[in-house]
């Protein structure tokens, strides 16, 4: 362990895993030496990557065995293709079989369009595998704070996790800003207005409305500590939990369904100066959020 702070946002998939798990505990499944590359990218004359943009394997956190996955957001935007998705599906099925917790470092734009049909079904297979692993007693902890954010089907998978840990950079949404703007016009969504994008989809907003559970600084150590805490939380997925989520999500529409902007929601939560939120440092924001946020505990 070094004392040098490591940015989660800047780190690659393998660096994130190294920062998360106990030293020398990681054993990769179907590593790059196997060259299990996408069979489809060459159709588009696009270069493949030996791990297809996701690293999966077994490791330990504080001596406790876990399964771990990290997406590489710099390769094809971390998007889900056939092989990429199947690696995560297999890992989650192992989590169910072994009753073992999983930590997933998301960094994805969603489905990889060059293999869209395979990627779309992979997302559905992964969501099913997450739910089944959780019903079998495994925790599935999602970490979101990478370059690509967590968009499209990635956002749906995240919504199936037990606990979500985000940094400010951890944008979660279904349609990306450019997609909404292209389809609905700049009046509906100005993808170039960075402040607007981040307060609508970013980690702070998601934390405040209960779309994410734990807010951390853009620091690999902070992600590790938050993951450790999340792995100590109760496990499971049952009818009571989904009924509580139903009530939580209905309440959100009832309270904030007419809010034109995130700042209106934040004010509605009781925050006196919502305009100050975007520039607030992580520690100060986490304290404020703890006081005012909508919690999703036992309701996700």
């Amino acid at each position: 362990m070094s004392n040098v702070r490591q940015s989660w946002y800047e780190a690659g998939a393998r660096e994130r895993i190294a920062a998360l798990v106990d030293a020398a505990s990681f054993a990769e499944f179907i590593g790059p030496e196997r060259r299990e590359i996408s069979p489809h990218l060459s159709i588009f004359d696009l270069p493949a990557q030996f791990d297809d943009g996701i690293v999966v394997g077994a490791a330990a956190i504080d001596g406790t065995p876990v399964l771990v996955a990290a997406q590489e957001g710099r390769f094809m935007g971390g998007a889900f293709g056939e092989v990429h998705g199947a690696k995560l599906t297999g890992l989650l099925r192992a989590a169910k079989a072994l009753g073992r917790d999983v930590v997933i470092a998301f960094d994805t734009g969603g489905v990889r369009l060059q293999e869209a049909n395979a990627g779309e079904i992979a997302i559905a297979e992964i969501m099913r595998a997450v739910a089944e692993a959780r019903m079998a007693g495994a925790r599935v902890v999602g970490l979101i704070g990478g370059r690509a954010g967590c968009y499209g089907g990635g956002g749906l998978i995240a919504g199936c996790c037990s606990t979500l840990i985000v940094s400010e950079q951890g944008r979660i949404s279904v349609s990306g800003p450019e997609v909404i703007e292209t389809n609905k016009g700049v009046e509906e969504f100005d993808s170039r207005d960075r402040g607007f994008v981040w307060r609508t989809m970013g980690g702070k907003h998601r934390t405040l409305i209960g779309g994410a559970d734990v807010f951390v600084d853009d620091d690999a150590t902070a992600f590790r500590e938050a993951a450790r805490a999340a792995l100590a939380r109760p496990a499971g997925l049952d009818a009571a939990m989904l009924s509580a989520e139903q009530a939580r999500l209905e309440r959100r529409i009832a309270r904030f369904g007419d809010a034109p902007d995130a700042t209106d929601i934040w004010r509605g939560l009781g925050i006196a100066d919502p305009q100050a939120i975007p520039d607030m440092p992580a520690a100060g924001f986490a304290d404020l959020a703890a006081q005012y946020r909508e919690s999703a505990d036992d309701a996700r």
Binding site: P32, E33, E72, F75
Partner: peptide, 19 residues
């Protein structure tokens, strides 16, 4: 070490697998 991997396949970048 049996192998090493550096870099990433992205615009202006490359991955190198050594065995």
């Amino acid at each position: 070490r049996a192998m090493a991997l550096v870099g990433v396949v992205a615009s202006g970048n490359l991955e190198v697998l050594l065995e």
